[in-house]
Simulated scan of single mutants.
Amino acid sequence: MIADLPAADLPRFDLHMHSTASDGALSPQELVELASENGVKLLALTDHDTLSGLDEAAATARQCGIRFVPGVELTCRWNTRVIHLLGLGIDPAHEGWKGYIENLEGLRQARAEKIAKRLVAKKLPEDLLARAQALAGSGQIGRPHFARALIEAGIVSTESEAFDRYLGQGKPGDVKAEWPDMHEAIEQVKASGGFALLAHPTKYNLTFSRLRILVKELGNAGADGFEVAYPGVSQEQIRLLMRMADQHDMYVSAGSDFHTPANRWTHLGRFPQVDTPRQLARVLV
C-alpha cells in the first residue's frame, strides 16, 4: 500500500484530533480554526464513538481552505483488551452508522452510570454524574469528563491526579464495557468507504511481540494499517512499527491526538515526522 504523491508535495496535516463532540475542549469550529492558525492544510476530526461534530468541522474547513477528512475513533475489543480504531475518509451518511453509533452511545451512558455509582460509594460527591454530563454537554461522555468534574468539585487538582487516584486502570472508576469486537468496527468503517487504522499502537501496554500478533490479526480482518507518529512515540518504536508496516504491506498514519490547548505536550499538527510512501495522508490529500 504505497501512495505516489511525493513527500515534498504533502501539505501539513493532522489526522487525529478531538472536539467537544467527544472529550475535546474546543468546539469543532474552534478546533479547525486553531488548526488553520497552526498551518494545517489537511485534517481529520476523529471524535470518540460519534460523528456529530463532522458537519460543523467540514463547514469551517471549507471557510478556512482546509482539506477535510471525515473521521471517527471507535472503541472496540481485541479479545478482552480495549483498543481504538480510527476510521478515516468515511461516509458519515452511510446507513450503517446510525445503529452502530446508537449502540456505542448506550454503552457509554451505561458505563458512565456505573463509574458514578462506584465513585459515590467511595464517598465522592453524589452529583458526580450530573457534573460529568454537564461537562460533556451534547457530546459523548467519557472518563475525562469525570476527571474534570472531580477537579471542579475540588477533589483533585489535575486530570492526571484524577486518573491516578480514581479513574485509571485498576481504580474504582475503571469500568469495563462490552465494546464491539474489532472485526465489527473494521467492517463498519470499510462499509462506509473509509480506511481502518489502529490508533496509537504503543499505548496499549503491549509487548512488541503481542503488538505484532495484533497487527497481523488486524490485517487479516481487513484493516488498512496503523498510526506510526503521534505524541509520546519514540524513534525506536517508529522504526519497529515501520518494519511491521512493510512486512504486512499496510498504510501508516500520523496525528496529534489533540484534546485541549491545556496539554502542553501536544499541539495541532505536531508529532514526529516520518517520511514514507506508506503515509495515508498522501492518498487523502
Results as ranks from 00 to 15, higher is better:
116 A>Y: 05
5 L>Y: 06
227 E>P: 01
8 A>H: 04
159 E>P: 02
156 V>H: 01
65 G>M: 12
126 E>N: 00
200 H>R: 09
160 S>F: 02
232 G>C: 14
118 R>M: 07
13 F>V: 05
218 L>R: 03
48 H>Y: 06
257 D>V: 08
64 C>Y: 00
202 T>Q: 13
24 G>N: 06
135 L>N: 06
203 K>V: 03
192 S>C: 13
40 V>L: 05
13 F>A: 09
124 L>Q: 01
53 G>K: 05
91 D>N: 14
177 A>V: 02
233 V>K: 04
118 R>P: 06
164 D>G: 07
171 K>G: 06
158 T>D: 05
126 E>C: 00
32 V>R: 00
14 D>G: 02
229 A>F: 10
210 R>F: 03
8 A>I: 09
136 A>D: 03
233 V>D: 05
114 K>P: 13
16 H>A: 07
51 L>Q: 02
119 L>E: 00
216 K>Y: 05
47 D>R: 03
215 V>G: 05
73 E>F: 09
215 V>Q: 03
234 S>W: 09
22 S>A: 12
52 S>W: 02
98 K>A: 07
193 G>N: 09
271 F>C: 07
115 I>N: 04
70 P>R: 09
30 E>N: 09
232 G>Y: 13
193 G>Q: 11
46 T>Q: 11
62 R>I: 01
109 Q>M: 10
142 G>R: 02
219 G>K: 14
248 H>W: 15
277 P>N: 15
167 L>T: 00
42 L>E: 01
230 Y>C: 12
151 I>W: 10
53 G>F: 13
95 E>K: 09
203 K>N: 12
244 M>E: 15
90 I>Y: 00
90 I>V: 14
246 D>T: 09
230 Y>K: 05
270 R>W: 12
55 D>H: 11
259 H>Y: 12
103 N>L: 04
105 E>S: 10
179 W>H: 03
285 V>H: 05
199 A>E: 04
133 Q>H: 05
212 R>H: 10
265 W>V: 07
43 L>N: 08
131 R>E: 13
113 E>L: 00
160 S>W: 03
29 Q>H: 10
243 R>N: 15
137 G>K: 00
18 H>K: 11
212 R>D: 14
19 S>G: 07
7 A>C: 10
106 G>I: 11
246 D>A: 04
14 D>T: 04
